[in-house]
């Protein structure tokens, strides 16, 4: 049975969230609090709706015509799906990092400055770029080559650049959709270390099919599993330590011990 934690104030709260693509229901009845300044991991087998659920948080699924969500998604006191709320504004506050690093084919500097410029940022852009790169633990590696193409960076650096780019528009939540799946173990470790730093300032929700990563980095873990009709349910949600040492649901146990999925 899904449980929710009320120990820390939630940054994002899903209440009975269900998702449809056309007439197909893909997620049913997900209720969970993603706490502030913590890392919440969403794990589950392929097709369990992990990314779909994550994309509900910054309304990225709105771009899919046949998408429909029921239930509620709250960001602090703000109802993300209230009529009239602006998805673009939401995405500034709830940043996202994707599976493959996707820097713009521009300079390192311009990758960071792009969002703030569009946003009408009036402050000191050099400072903002430095702060953002510092925040993503990339500054020392790129400070002498800010005008070089972002595509000249390694995969791990590109991913940290994407994190810096997300930080530049001053979000409070960062969503990460399998941010390390295209990276080697060393670059993965760098991102995982960075996440521990970032959570002091931001709240993080990460989707990962690498459950060892969820075990290593997260404070809370949510386990999603599709039923025989391919409708995903939240099977278990709780403290990562407990979920990985003594899960309450036998399906969670079977999944994390590699017995299926």
């Amino acid at each position: 049975m899904a449980t929710t934690s009320m120990a820390t104030r939630p940054a994002v709260r899903a209440i009975n969230v269900g998702v449809y693509y056309g007439s197909n229901k893909v997620i049913e009845g997900v209720t969970m609090d993603m706490p502030e300044n913590e890392i919440t991991a969403i794990i589950g087998p392929s097709g369990a709706g992990k990314s779909t659920l994550l994309r509900c948080i910054n309304r990225l699924n709105d771009l899919i015509e046949i998408f429909r969500m029921e239930g509620e998604m709250w960001f602090g006191d703000f109802n993300l799906y209230a009529p009239g709320s602006d998805p673009t504004q939401i995405r500034y506050r709830i940043g996202m990092v994707f599976q493959r690093p996707n820097p713009f084919p521009k300079s390192i500097y311009d990758n960071i400055a792009f969002g703030p410029r569009i946003n009408g940022f009036k402050g000191n852009m050099d400072e903002l770029v430095e702060q953002s790169l510092q925040g993503a633990a990339l500054w020392d590696e790129v400070k002498d080559r800010l005008k070089e193409s972002a595509l000249s960076l390694s995969g791990g650096q590109q991913q940290r650049l994407c994190i810096a780019r997300a930080l530049a528009v001053e979000p409070s939540v960062i969503l990460m959709d399998e941010p390390c799946s295209a990276l080697d173990p060393i670059a993965t470790l760098a991102i995982e270390e960075l996440m521990q730093e970032l959570k002091k300032t931001y709240s993080i929700v990460i989707v990962t099919h690498n459950m060892q990563q969820a075990g290593r980095v997260s404070d809370k873990t949510a386990f999603l599993l599709p039923d025989e009709n391919r409708v995903a349910h939240l099977i278990e949600f709780g403290d990562t330590r407990t979920l990985f040492t003594n899960p309450t649901d036998e399906r969670t146990e079977a999944y994390i011990t590699g017995r299926f999925g």
Partner: peptide, 9 residues
């Protein structure tokens, strides 16, 4: 020890 084994591989 159990927690470290379960979460840190």
């Amino acid at each position: 020890c159990v927690t470290l084994m379960a979460t840190q591989q």
